[in-house]
Nucleic acid binder design. Structure first.
Lengths: 104, 104
DNA sequence: TGAACAAATGTCGAATCTGACATATCGTGA
DNA sequence: TCACGATATGTCAGATTCGACATTTGTTCA
């Protein structure tokens, strides 16, 4: 992983490996982050395609605008549970979610 | 959803809809549970295929035997985050996970 | 410019999930 | 039957994530 990408992730708050590990993420850590970011992008893309604001999505899923912003921004303190719950409520079906994950 | 299936889920601790909602889960609630159960089964299947015990898996992923049992048993108080982290550490790749989700 | 709306960021107490541990139950070979 | 290894269940304090709210940072348009 290039240092530039690493820095982008660390700036976002991702805990990239143990302290002192300057050589990169383990394969699984990297895959987990990629998966989460893929779902984040899917939330943003789905919302924009439907013409809704973050506040409207928040109301639809029973959450708040700030949390939707964190979801879309790839905040590490957002769970897969919340991302999946959100996508399903926005009408994205399991098949589409699975494809995104497989391709991430 | 047949009452028998509902009861099975409720016995496992799933909060199946609001109190007084006897007509079934919303599509999204149902999909979310199906997704989680699909990953639960995948953890169990992967472990068994590799011939490991739950305690060995627990040690490999930095958790405990009881939590692995809960994962495999489909305990609702197990997060997608933990299930996905576990599958990746067991060597299941994103593509395989995505396929399971798409087919769930 | 500056109002007005959308999105991003930071914080907080409450709710949820965690690993760990104790214990119970199951399966199976002696 | 009994012992023993594997799995299931229950509980708890600590960690993580939650929705909510306040505030800041764009962006657009009159």
């Amino acid at each position: 992983m290039p240092g530039s990408k690493r820095n982008q992730l660390e700036e976002k708050g991702w805990n990239v490996g143990d302290a002192g590990d300057f050589l990169g993420l383990s394969k699984e850590e990297e895959a987990l982050i990629e998966l989460k970011l893929a779902l984040s992008r899917e939330v943003a893309a789905t919302r924009k395609a439907s013409g809704m604001t973050q506040a409207e999505v928040a109301s639809q899923i029973g959450s708040s605008q700030s949390r939707v912003a964190k979801m879309e921004g790839g905040d590490p303190a957002v769970s897969f549970d919340l991302l999946l719950k959100t996508l399903l409520k926005l009408g994205v079906d399991k098949k589409a979610i699975g494809k995104k994950i497989a391709a991430a």
